[in-house]
Design a protein around this nucleic acid. Structure first.
Lengths: 150, 150
DNA sequence: CTCCTAGAGTTGATGTGTCAACTCTAGGAT
DNA sequence: ATCCTAGAGTTGACACATCAACTCTAGGAG
């Protein structure tokens, strides 16, 4: 069992995380009318040179399950942020790109979100807090990251 | 715009967070066959003296939206973890308690989850990392916590 | 007593995320 | 050429989360 003190530490940390994520989500929603999931897809496509990727490239870049990507793209097509450029017989996507609106939104969202990250995450950190948290994050990722080699 | 270095810091931190959350969720799912949401409800009810709360008490204790609590309780009643003890004319819950199974699951889940938190979160932290992260979390919560007073 | 309003609780719609099952389709082995 | 298998992509079912709209119901003002 956890000691009350340990439990409180854990609870506070979880709460901080949740509040930060919530704050950033709301910012994206308020200023750009998009969700975090939509932001991730827009940014990934925006960063691609030709703005045109295969679904599996998105899967790799985002490290999402392919079904998650597929569902997300369907919703974003309906919202007009993304085009499918389909080819096959069935409604099968081969390449995915941004619409004009998607490109516009992506551009502004990257600025807005960056500013919010700076404001809520980077700026309040003292240099040694930043160093500690960075080291710890890397340590955690190293320990928990699933190995893609096999 | 964020510098590449800043962006990488942010991305690494997000990834660490996500991996840790995922690891704990999977642990709960694997060992106790419950989700994080179910765990929160079970633990809250378990900690209540009489194991019997009003829905709004759960709302306060969990700091969730009331509709979220309501939906969650409906699912958990269907799974047999929780009883409604209804009273009103309509199927309106007045008090909520654990079933025998719910109590059993809660007990073991608290142990399992505690051990996992220790293993993945507490143990790998050096004392000064712990102090830094704790201070930062408190700072963040203090800044972002919505005020309940008005 | 009657009204009526604030709080408690529910419901439905929609978006998000995961899992498992399914359908194409391109290539290679024979 | 035929088979057949691995990979790409989709779909459906379900759990979770949020928002807005709705229904009770208890208590107080008159």
């Amino acid at each position: 069992m956890l000691e009350p003190d340990e439990w409180e530490f854990w609870a506070t940390w979880m709460r901080a995380q949740q509040l930060l994520a919530q704050e950033l989500d709301r910012g994206l929603q308020r200023d750009c009318a998009i969700s975090k999931a939509e932001f991730s897809v827009l940014m990934t496509l925006y960063r691609a040179q030709g703005d045109d990727m295969r679904v599996s490239d998105l899967v790799d870049a985002l490290d999402w399950e392919k079904s998650r990507v597929s569902h997300q793209l369907t919703r974003m097509e309906n919202r007009g942020l993304v085009t499918q450029t389909e080819s096959g017989a069935s409604g099968r996507r081969t390449r995915v790109g941004l619409t004009t609106e998607g490109r516009t939104v992506a551009q502004s969202a990257i600025l807005v979100h960056g500013a919010n990250i700076r404001r809520h995450f980077l700026d309040p950190l003292t240099p040694d807090q930043a160093a500690t948290i960075r080291a710890w994050s890397e340590q955690l990722v190293g320990r928990l990251e699933p190995r893609h080699d096999t």
